[in-house]
Design a protein around this nucleic acid. Structure first.
Lengths: 343, 343
DNA sequence: TCACGATACTGAACCGGTTCAGTCACCGAC
DNA sequence: GTCGGTGACTGAACCGGTTCAGTATCGTGA
């Protein structure tokens, strides 16, 4: 008592062991320069003292790393809470980072400009060692900004348009083609896709796959309309579509939140799912299994994507060369919200 | 060209301005010790050079702060993705922190022990300046652990059981009493509450409020059963309750995810909502408005809670004395999922 | 027996800030 | 004219690590 609790430093260890700071550093980092007996003595003292390296000090030393990576999400704040995607991704990312003792900084941004501002600040203030970029856009300004900063980055999305940054990408076009074939086989011809924002690369890829499959199946009336991933927009769009003279018989949504909203609107308008309308969701979260009818969805391992992309960034930070990587295809999970027309 | 891009330091500024490091530091921090003309010259040079303070260096200096706070969430990873609560809370927290230039570290943990391990590591390695503790338990080990570490902390929950830590609390008992009165007024007598885990303080508070209101309204059959906030558990519990000989006519859920699952199960079992069963959710997220029937819910300003609790932590870190604070009561939002029995 | 090289270690510089104790010039008061 | 005080600034220490250039000690081979 009396002495104020203070974090032990390597200097404390050095004094207790009767050696110099440098020797302690070598011992603790498993580097040559100390004898095995000395190393063990130092490690034991360090453990007795409850020593842990000061992260700021490590980061400050020449060539030091901050031991944290950053992620910025800039979808509309309103939808963020419900969007299962990000928390699952975050869980996966952290699982991978935890092993390396790396932390995750999370920021929500209003738009892509404030997102860039966050990256600039993080780089200037040395807050993070690298970042994971999500929701790649068409002509995305972020990859090129990363080149200037410089802030090592890995992109979730692509391929293409990543400005040389390593990326983890998915062939969404293939998944959407499977959905169209599935719906066409059920007899649907008026299929409309309620998509995410037009300037996302994966939206564009899905749209291309959708059009191609529709043309292939001879569905002249298939088309894509855009919304913004929020339940509100999904509901509004669905209401408009179902009120048309010849409403679609099948709707394909780009996330599960809009699909859920669509299901609600159909019910409100007296349109039965699936006998009068089939609904397919993207991003098969638990939501899809909770509602009635349960939602047919394209299921991807978002948690796994997080692990992989974090691993890629880790290796990039370690100075290794990192190749682009493709994820397994999303799998169509047929459930109660799709079926043949029975009118 | 040829010169490698290097972050500018205050030494670079000092050289350019022809003054010492110390003078630059005084100028940049708005402290006395430099003339107004010199200060302006230094600021202008700093801006020209694109200087920003190195966070590790600032943190390392005596009395320096890391400029980051941490938050650990340890609900079951499965439910995390859909639980709107956390992302809304995070948004609110960050909005408040952004103004002070503070970052947020987020960690997901499997259980309360690994959560404590994270706090210990953060404190030992000086990763964060303080933490926000959520989901306070009965006999929670965390407040007391914080006293030892030492890591400044603010609790979202309580009051009581916070071991002296400042807290932001809600009178959940009052809200649940309002719900019971509302349902009783609609004619319901067999009301069951599907609650969160028993060892959460707010679960216990709600249970107490629920029992008191039930006794007051003469509802002998009202009771509480416990689940774990996941949709799966909410659905399973609902199925069991509705299969009983004399099933409840109203269910009150502790979050909206379980309420959503309950709604699905009711539909699956052919129980109409609201004519045969009324459903009330807690945490009024957009989900409640998207499904049909829309869910009556207790609405709270989770985003606002985040702002307030972050502000409290900020002031605590600044050395100010912080008082416990109560949030406004959650408001009952009656929607389509509740009504009188019409059997 | 001596030179040589390897091993084990020390001392100091360095990272980029903050802060404290001085130094110096200048100004007003007596 | 001198004294004291103040404002402006410098130089150096400090935070807690990492790393590099030396140095002392030892064993070994010729």
């Amino acid at each position: 008592m009396g002495s104020v609790m203070r974090r032990p430093t390597i200097m404390d260890i050095a004094k207790a062991a009767g050696v110099s700071k440098g020797a302690v550093s070598y011992a603790l980092n498993g580097r040559p320069g100390v004898s095995e007996t000395t190393r063990e003595r130092i490690l034991s003292i360090a453990s007795d003292l409850g020593w842990a390296p000061s992260n700021p000090a490590r980061a400050l030393a020449p060539g030091g790393r901050v031991g944290a990576i950053g992620m910025v999400v800039d979808r509309p704040a309103r939808s963020l809470g419900i969007e299962p995607f990000f928390m699952q991704l975050v869980s996966g990312v952290e699982t991978e980072l935890a092993a390396a003792g790396i932390d995750l900084m999370l920021q929500v941004a209003e738009n892509i400009d404030s997102e860039l501002e966050v990256y600039r600040r993080w780089a200037a203030e040395r807050r993070v060692d690298g970042v994971i970029i999500v929701d790649l856009r068409v002509d995305d300004p972020r990859p090129e900004a990363m080149g200037v900063l410089p802030l090592p980055a890995v992109v979730l999305g692509g391929p293409g348009g990543t400005g040389g940054l390593p990326c983890l990408y998915t062939d969404d076009g293939a998944s959407v083609r499977e959905v169209v074939h599935y719906l066409a086989a059920l007899g649907h011809r008026r299929i409309v896709r309620v998509a995410g924002p037009e300037d996302f690369v994966h939206t564009r890829d899905r749209t291309a796959g959708f059009q191609e499959a529709a043309r292939h199946a001879g569905l002249a009336e298939a088309r894509t309309v855009h919304a913004d991933y929020t339940g509100e927009a999904g509901g509004r769009t669905t209401r408009r579509l179902l009120a048309a003279a010849e409403p679609p018989t099948a709707l394909v949504y780009d996330n599960d939140l809009m699909a859920l909203a669509g299901l609600g609107v159909a019910s409100e308008m007296g349109v039965d799912v699936p006998s009068q309308l089939s609904i397919v969701a993207w991003d098969d979260s638990a939501l899809c299994r909770l509602v009635r009818p349960s939602l047919t969805a394209i299921s991807r391992d978002v948690f796994g994507h997080g692990r992989i992309v974090a691993g890629m960034l880790n290796r990039l930070l370690a100075g290794e060369r990192v190749e682009d990587r493709e994820t397994p295809l999303g799998e169509l999970q047929p459930r109660g919200s799709t079926g043949p027309l029975t009118s």
